[in-house]
Design a protein around this nucleic acid. Structure first.
Length: 352
DNA sequence: AAAGCGGGGAC
DNA sequence: GTCCCAGCTTT
């Protein structure tokens, strides 16, 4: 730790800045344990701006742990549609069931760690904000601030090892009199001032504590090894019923590792088609889109399938034996099911 | 079009 | 410890 860093000065400068300039966010107005939990789940892997409309609607529809616990999972997933990483929604649902099953919610960070979807970061966020537990949240924002504050040039292999490295430092720095506000202030500082590129050091409330700000390029911290990306190409099928009033969709099983319980346009493999079934005569490329997820860059091609009678019979037989993984969904019912975000968009754009 | 963010869980 | 998850924003 930087010997020059005066913790007391840092804490009070940070807190004064936060209390004067915190953004007005819906989970900060009239805070409750439930709102804190929902917001922290939504903010895993998702930026504030994206989560905002989802949070407002969620609180309107499911205003407390009881409402969430008694809601059917399909409704929970539908409310999450478009946010991605649906295991967060399923974990949040299970967490509500666990919370309502006990006389009162736990208070200790270690107890929250046992609940589904709660890791070190989320346990620290929830318990510091709701119960004043003196534990630090360590996310990418906090790593960035601490690496700059101490001008630490360590090269980390990835963000999780960086978080582990900075956790003791972050805990030593927490303001024990106001850990919730301290943690939120760190996140706020990272999101608005101590940004990854072009940090606004000139207006930073803790500039006088920061060793990085005294270097030529504070943005060089933290030093993370470059990630390698992998190209992936996938194909999806747009296939209508004979009457052209329903589309064939694939629903991942509730225990699937990816997109559990979520509908997508089927891949050729999902309906047991191979290349020779997809001739230029019966399969036409109607759309192509690129998207990114973690280290993958995915090129997705959408083929409209208009098969002859024998192939159609084969697919019909396959649907019957698919145990609900393949379903005809009426075009008028598309709004009633949960589609993955990218497939929802492609359907609206090209097939609506 | 490419690069970056980001915590949790399964193994 | 390592890998996977299947999405958006910023540049």
């Amino acid at each position: 730790m930087n010997a020059a860093l005066d913790k007391k000065t840092f804490r009070s400068d940070l807190l004064a800045w936060y209390r004067a300039s915190a953004r007005a966010l819906p989970w900060r107005a009239k805070p409750s344990l439930y709102k804190t939990v929902v917001s922290e789940f939504m903010l895993q892997q998702t930026q504030v701006k994206t989560a905002l409309p989802y949070f407002e609607r969620w609180i309107r529809e499911l205003p407390g742990f009881d409402a969430l616990a008694t809601a059917p999972e399909a409704r929970v997933l539908k409310l999450w549609e478009g946010l991605g990483y649906y295991s967060r929604a399923r974990n949040l649902h299970k967490l509500a069931l666990a919370i309502t099953a006990r006389p009162e919610p736990p208070r200790a960070p270690a107890a929250w760690l046992e609940l589904p979807g709660v890791g070190p970061y989320t346990a620290a966020a929830i318990t510091s904000i709701s119960f004043g537990e003196p534990v630090a949240c360590v996310d990418g924002n906090v790593v960035r601030i601490l690496a700059r504050l101490t001008a630490d040039g360590t090269v980390f292999r990835d963000s999780s090892s960086a978080a582990k490295y900075f956790t003791p430092i972050a805990n030593a720095l927490v303001n024990k009199a106001a850990p919730g506000d301290h943690n939120q202030a760190m996140m706020e500082l990272g999101a608005t001032i101590c940004t990854r590129q072009n940090p606004s050091c000139a207006i930073c409330p803790v500039r006088s504590s920061c060793a990085g700000a005294r270097t030529l390029s504070p943005e060089q911290f933290p030093r993370l090894a470059a990630k390698k990306t992998e190209e992936q190409s996938v194909c999806r099928i747009w296939f209508l019923s004979t009457k052209r009033d329903a589309v064939l969709l694939h629903r991942a099983s509730p225990s699937a590792r990816r997109l559990a319980g979520i509908f997508e346009l089927p891949s050729p493999a999902d309906i047991e088609l191979d290349e020779k079934d997809l001739t230029t005569k019966n399969a036409k490329l109607v759309a192509e889109q690129k998207r990114s997820i973690t280290r993958y860059r995915i090129t997705e091609k959408f083929l409209a399938l208009t098969p002859g009678a024998p192939l159609r019979r084969r697919i019909d037989a396959r649907i019957k034996t698919s145990a609900g993984m393949l379903q005809w969904i009426a075009l008028s019912d598309l709004d009633k099911i949960t589609l993955s975000g990218p497939h929802r968009r492609i359907v609206q754009k090209h097939f609506a």
